[in-house]
Amino acid sequence: MTDKTILNDHKMTARNVSVWYGAVQAIGDVSIDIDQDKVTAFIGPSGCGKSTFLRTLNRMNDTIASARVEGDIRLDGEDVYAREMDVVQLRARVGMVFQKPNPFPKSIYENVAYGPRIHGLASSKADMDRIVERSLARAGLWGEVKDRLSDSGTALSGGQQQRLCIARAIAVDPEVILMDEPCSALDPIATAKIEELIHELKGRYAIVVVTHNMQQAARVSQRTAFFHLGQLVEYGQTSDIFTNPREERTRDYITGRYG
């Protein structure tokens, strides 16, 4: 973690973060920096706490009654867990895409318009139309759905639904996008589309992607963090982690010796 390129341009910083579910500790003492304009991949065996840590970044753990978070997480230097932090604003700035596509049972248009409407981002109907079109276009879905915006979002294919969810997330113009295994429910073609999309989005947002797919991590990310048993084992440039890991455990994992 002494790598120079990692030290500048931090969008989010986490210091000594621990998470408990009731009395069980799921994350222990994790410190990490999420960089502006980069894609960071979280990898690690199932149950090691990737999702849990990801959810601390936009305080989605607040919705789990038993979860308790300790440590210091900052977004542009602002304390995310501070009393005066507005969770509504935080989640508008730190968007999230879930493992299973979860469009609302509303029209495609309304799915994308949901966030802007809640946050009052559009001043007119025309404005809203523009936001919806732009978001769908950025998510690479506009061409496929522009003639059926009033169809239900749940009627789309799995891959389209996931891109709709990405469009929904970027419609509120977030600064960070958290994606928890966004491709695990998709076929290879849909996966390729999402990966392409991540490439295109990375110049604009800080992106964190949880993945079980090593090739995917290598393809889409510039930074990789390896978690194991609730600990952050290693974090660095993706190329370094995959070609020259410092830790034995990282090497074993990425070469498929366990996991």
């Binding site: 989640r91 809640i118 969810c165």
Partner: peptide, 19 residues
């Protein structure tokens, strides 16, 4: 997942319920 999706968009619990 519906509820989480809405909350993650920054909707408050009551917005999530009504919308």
């Amino acid at each position: 997942a519906m509820r989480d999706g809405s909350l993650a968009m920054g909707a408050t619990p009551s917005e999530t319920i009504s919308r």
